[in-house]
Nucleic acid binder design. Structure first.
Lengths: 244, 244
DNA sequence: GCAATAGTGTCTATCAGACAATATAGC
DNA sequence: GCTATATTGTCTGATAGACACTATTGC
């Protein structure tokens, strides 16, 4: 039977279908480290574990619309860089029923990160540090904002540890050749702030002059002539991201 | 209501769910161009259009297992590089009912490409040439193996043109920093063959000495000491791909 | 020897890292 | 002037492209 025949004869009610969900990695920079916003689970399964904010996809709702809805419902945000990450569909990933989830990466600047936290007290900011595993992600360790590891170590529900790790790997991989880094910054920013973002995501210090040259050569930065305020030393120039 | 509460109270039968499918981009190199294997649709919707081989995901079937099953059923192949591409879920992408599809990239070497073609006469090899559109893909033009454009131009069913274009973009992007290129080659290959693959995917000629150096410096190639046969000129050495 | 391609050597332009020097703000 | 950081200049090593050269096979 060809696909065409199969589709024609397909009775939508005849087969059981997986449930379809979206899960969001709300990612920002906190204390110089990548940080995500998690929700505590109070019920089984995975009671007491931490989970990504998510929700089910409605029958008449596009995937990106579902992600945007979760972003609004759980974090009260209307604007964020939303990017599809990967679709997780192992059979046993949810012990109750079959749930396939489309994971999304939501990049928040400092202001949006704080706003989400203020709007929903159930969210916990957690600094993440992905072990450099394979492309599909690996184990992660979570650290409380203070800097000390939470004891006992944070346990993530479902396969959300894989999703978090993959989010960071993806971001790290795209940082150099794309403009995602600017999604983590306010509209006006200094070159030092941009470098801080790159260092936080990459997990390694960068050479300042080389970084400046590289960024300015990309042609994405337009100088504003304005300078930052409130420093006790020479203020840096503020730049704006602008596609070439 | 938190996600945990929602999940707990969620009645699997209470809500309509989208159908979940997988679609495969069976990609190989043909006449120095990237080529995909398509199926003709005989029935509405999109009768007379060309479509990617695909199928629905069973309730107890993982996503990669569904992709492997389609690979086997439609192309009679048991081994191929399978890589998840993107999940397409616009509401109207299938005019009959809501279908969300997880698109996969299947990379075939010349032998596997020919075997699939021989095993399933319904498959049509089509050379693809992606316009350099945005990241989510764009319009493509398809060319018959002879080299001349098919008249009238090939029409692809559903959003499969976007999927094809995205497949090529993804492959192009990963070619330089990953080892996907070797999935398009037989176990033993010459440096010229490797360069041909890179030029076909990249769509641009490459400098021979620089390409050799770059590839050998990666440490992925182990020389076999053997040489190709049947040439009327100096035969090239055969290499094998080996992770460092 | 001839034709055709494999494989190598070398020059040069580009780019990133290292490091030092200069500039400028608050105090 | 002092401190702390911004910003710039320069040297150097790594890398890619260009191009010419040598090597080796079948005929």
């Amino acid at each position: 039977m060809t696909e065409a025949e199969f589709l024609t004869q397909y009775d939508p009610a005849a087969y059981q279908r997986p449930s379809l969900a979206v899960d969001l990695v709300l990612l920002g920079i906190r204390d110089g480290r990548p940080a995500a916003l998690l929700q505590a689970r109070r019920d089984h399964p995975f009671a007491g574990h931490w989970a990504l904010p998510g929700g089910f996809v409605a029958i008449d709702e596009a995937l990106d619309a579902a992600a945007a809805r979760v972003l609004h419902d759980k974090a009260r945000l209307t604007h964020a860089h939303l990017e599809q990450l990967y679709t997780f569909g192992a059979v046993g990933r949810d012990p109750r029923t079959r749930v396939v989830t489309v994971a999304w990466l939501a990049l928040l600047d400092e202001r949006a990160f704080a706003a989400a936290l203020a709007a929903n007290p159930a969210l916990l900011p957690v600094a993440i540090e992905a072990a450099w595993a394979g492309e599909q992600g690996g184990p992660i360790t979570a650290i409380a904002p203070g800097g000390a590891p939470l004891a006992p170590p944070i346990n993530l529900a479902f396969d959300h540890a894989d999703i978090l790790a993959l989010a960071l790997l993806r971001l790290r991989g795209k940082l150099d050749y794309s403009d995602v880094g600017f999604a983590l910054l306010p509209p006006l920013f200094t070159l030092r702030q941009l470098q801080d973002v790159h260092e936080a995501i990459g997990g390694a210090p960068l050479n300042k002059p080389a970084f400046r040259r590289r960024m300015l050569d990309k042609g994405w930065l337009s100088p504003t002539g304005e300078r930052e305020e409130g420093t006790s030393f020479r203020p840096a120039e503020l730049f704006r991201f602008q596609r070439p």
